[in-house]
Design a protein around this nucleic acid. Sequence first.
DNA 1: GTGGTCTAGACCACG
DNA 2: GTGGTCTAGACCACG
Lengths: 133, 133, 133, 133
Amino acid sequence: MELRLDPSSDTPLYTQIVEQVRRLVARGALRAGDRLPTVRELAASCRVNRNTAARAVQVLESEGVVRTRVGRGTFVADGAAAASATLHETALDRLLEQAAREASALGLDPEEAARRLRAKMKTVPEGRRGGKP
Amino acid sequence: MELRLDPSSDTPLYTQIVEQVRRLVARGALRAGDRLPTVRELAASCRVNRNTAARAVQVLESEGVVRTRVGRGTFVADGAAAASATLHETALDRLLEQAAREASALGLDPEEAARRLRAKMKTVPEGRRGGKP
Amino acid sequence: MELRLDPSSDTPLYTQIVEQVRRLVARGALRAGDRLPTVRELAASCRVNRNTAARAVQVLESEGVVRTRVGRGTFVADGAAAASATLHETALDRLLEQAAREASALGLDPEEAARRLRAKMKTVPEGRRGGKP
Amino acid sequence: MELRLDPSSDTPLYTQIVEQVRRLVARGALRAGDRLPTVRELAASCRVNRNTAARAVQVLESEGVVRTRVGRGTFVADGAAAASATLHETALDRLLEQAAREASALGLDPEEAARRLRAKMKTVPEGRRGGKP
DNA sequence: GTGGTCTAGACCACG
DNA sequence: GTGGTCTAGACCACG
C-alpha cells in the first residue's frame, strides 16, 4: 500500500493518510478483510512520526473504515466501502456548498459554475469511473 | 453591518469576520469609501475580544480590501471590489479542485457533479447576480 | 497660506501641515516676522480638527520655526529659515541612510542607487533651486 | 540567527523582526527551505513576547517569505528571495521619492543629492554586492 | 515539541 | 473618540 504524502500541503499529514486510505477503499483497491500495514510500517513508508500514523488509523477506525484487533493488526472493516462512500458524499456536499457560496459571491450564474467544475474534473487524476478495477 | 459568527466552527473567529466582510464587498453591499464599524463596535456586535476584531481588520487591510486611518476609522478601499473578487476566485478554484477530486473518488461523471453544483447554487442565499443592487 | 493635505496619505495630518509650513519657510515663501493664520483659521482652511491644527503649531514651535505670543498670534521665528533647513537636512540624512540600506539589501551598487535618485528628482515638484523666488 | 531590535525605536518590534528577516533573505543569508528558529526561540532571543514573534512570522508568511507548518516549524519559502526583493524595491522607491522631495526643498540639485546617497552607501553595512556568498 | 487562536488588560499616537 | 502595539497567560491542533 503505497501512499503519496505532500509535506508542503496545508492538509495535515494524518488527514492525507486518512483520505488516501478512504479513496483506496472507495475505489475497491482495498476490500473488507484486507490487512493494513502496522502503524510502524505505515509511519516508515510515509516517513512520518508514529503518532501521526497512529492518529490516521484511529480516525479511520472511528469512521468505520478499518477495525483494529489488538495483537492481530488492522483490517479493512465490513461495510468499509459503504462507510467510505458516505464520507466522500458528505465531503463533496460540503465542498459544493462552499463553492456555491463563493460562486454566488462572485456573481457567477449556476451554469458557469457548473462549467468550471466540469472542466476541473477533466484535469483531475483517475477516479473509479468505468467500473471496478 | 450585522455579521453572524459561529464560535463552534473550526474556522477562526477572525477569519469568519474577514470572509463575511469580503463577501459584502464582493456583492456590492459595501462600496469604496464606505465606513466600517469601529473595531470596538465590531467586537461588541460579534461578541469577540477587541484584539480579535482588530486582527480581522488588519487581514482585510493587508488584502487591500480596507484602508484604516488611525484616529479616523476603517474604510472600504479603492479597488476593494477587485481585490475581493480575486480572493474569491482563488478560493473557488481551490474548492472546485477538491470537489472534483471527491467526485472522482466517488466515481461520479463530470455531468453529474456539475448537476449537483448547479442544484446547490439554487439553494444558497442571494448573490450579486442580475446586476448592481 | 494655502496648504494641500492628503487625507488618504499615511502621514498624519498634523505632520503634513508641519512639513508644508517648514517647506514654505525653507523656500522663502514665509519669512521671519510673518504672521501665520490662527489655529482656528488653519483648521478651517485645512478642514481638520482644531486639535490637529494646534498640534502642528506646537510642533513647529518646538522646532523653532514659529513663535507664539499669547494674545497676539503666531509668527515665523527669527532664524526660522536656518531651523527649517536643519530639519530638512536631518530628514534627508535619515532617508538617505534608509535608502542606502534598502539598496544595499537589493545588491544595487552605489552608482545605480544614485542614478535612481537623480531620476526621481526630475519627476518631483518644484524646489527652491535657482535662487529665492 | 541573531536579530537586533531597538525597543526605543518607533518602528514596532514585530516590524523590526520582519524587516531583518526579509533582509537576510534578500541577501541570501537565508535560503529557500532553511528552517527559522521556533517562535519561542525567536521570542526568547529577541526578548519579546511569544505573540509578538508569532505576529512577525505571520506577516512574513502573508508576504510569501516564509511558510509555516504547524507542529513542524517555519521555513524559508520557495520564491522567498523574489518576494523579498519586490518588497525591498517598493520600500526603496518610496524612500527615494521622499528623499527627492526633501532634497528639493533644500534646493539641492540632483547631482548633489545623488552624491550624498553614493556616499551613504559606502558607510552602510555589507550588502549582497559582488555575487552570492 | 511545533505554531495558531483567543482573551484581558495596559498603554500609545492621532483627531 | 479612533486604531495600533505589546504583554501575560490559557487552550488547542499537529507531529
